[in-house]
Design a protein around this nucleic acid. Structure first.
Lengths: 118, 118, 118, 118
DNA sequence: GTGGTCTAGACCACA
DNA sequence: GTGGTCTAGACCACA
């Protein structure tokens, strides 16, 4: 089973879809620190997209510190814990803000919890 | 006790701060359908801002269907239930989206519920 | 065949629907000057509505000079020509205004004529 | 020659007169998609009105999708074709309604066409 | 009294 | 330079 599926209805560019899918896989521990990512060419052919598109994904992932690329060797996951904490902190801040807003407009905590458990 | 307090750390314009405060008060039932809102001038003097600023708040609230204004008479709350449903629907949609995203990056439902109950 | 048909989808009050139907019938010459209108009761029962509703229609028609009511005799069409001219004048003024506006927004006279002849 | 002339006999507020004049100019193709509109301040001084008045005109034009405003850059015409279709549709609907009403009160199609060609 | 519009002019953010 | 917000204060229509 493929780990990455492109979504035709998603209006973001492909390189960005692939980028956020890879970030998710790293955060979920499917790829761990120092694990090699698939090569640009192999991932491109698996998804039937142009290698340039995947190249762009990898370049951006490296720029943001998710992976390191070693010439002639490949790309490897890096800084998992830093990234995990960063992402979790941002999400938590958004979540708390939205919960506060919900309370202000009269939505009960029970209703919120129900929405989560559903 | 004043119902509305301006927050100088809030970077939104004053007319918008007052607007969202009034929306909250309507959603929470502090102002009910057909209740008169304070007049433009009286609210302006209570908050020590220019009447034009409050005028703008009321114009936008009317445009969005929160209140109806009768010339020479004043402004009155309108459509409370419609607005309640609209606002709740939008909030719920945002919330569900954020919860999904949280799950994707590995945040447990327990952690989310904890953030709500805190 | 009944001359007046109520329209369920019309959101105006019944007395007003009947009123404008009667005005049309007078303007079109179905009822001529001095002709008697149906009695309040007979028209009410024909349309299956409350006589008070038709009473209101007739009161308003009299107030605006379309008919005269003679106690014990009934209601009669009056001032047909005055009303014809008034109505035509108002309609023409609206029409000319709308045509001007159409030209301003780039609608050709040919297009307008086509809309009429269709 | 000035493209916009204020009409002191027009009882609508200035900001609204200017607004509908600009809409006409866009519909007639005097301003095309992506064209810059005059800046708030320059149009205000050209018409000898307060910049706030023109500011209001531009804010409403943006809210209704006629223009897009880029802070520090200026305001630009947008969505010409969408707006053309919208406006034409509304006008046609009003026109057809008025023609129907005219027929009901006994005005001949010939008379209508004459009013248009005059 | 109420809201609606407008002027004159300041100050801010963005580019 | 551009637009966005705000103050201070006038004058109008409506009731």
């Amino acid at each position: 089973m493929a780990l990455i599926l492109l979504d035709y209805k998603d209006r973001r560019p492909i390189y960005e879809q692939v980028k956020s899918k890879l970030e998710e896989l790293i955060l979920l521990g499917v790829f761990n620190e120092s694990d090699p990512l698939p090569s640009v060419r192999s991932l491109a052919s698996e998804l039937s997209v142009n290698p340039n598109t995947i190249q762009r994904t990898y370049t951006e992932l490296e720029r943001e510190g998710w992976i390191v690329t070693i010439k002639g060797r490949g790309s490897f996951v890096s800084n998992v814990n830093v990234k995990k904490m960063e992402t979790e902190k941002n999400w938590t801040s958004d979540f708390v803000k939205l919960v506060d807003e919900g309370i202000k407009i009269g939505i009960s905590k029970e209703k919120m919890i129900e929405l989560i458990e559903k």
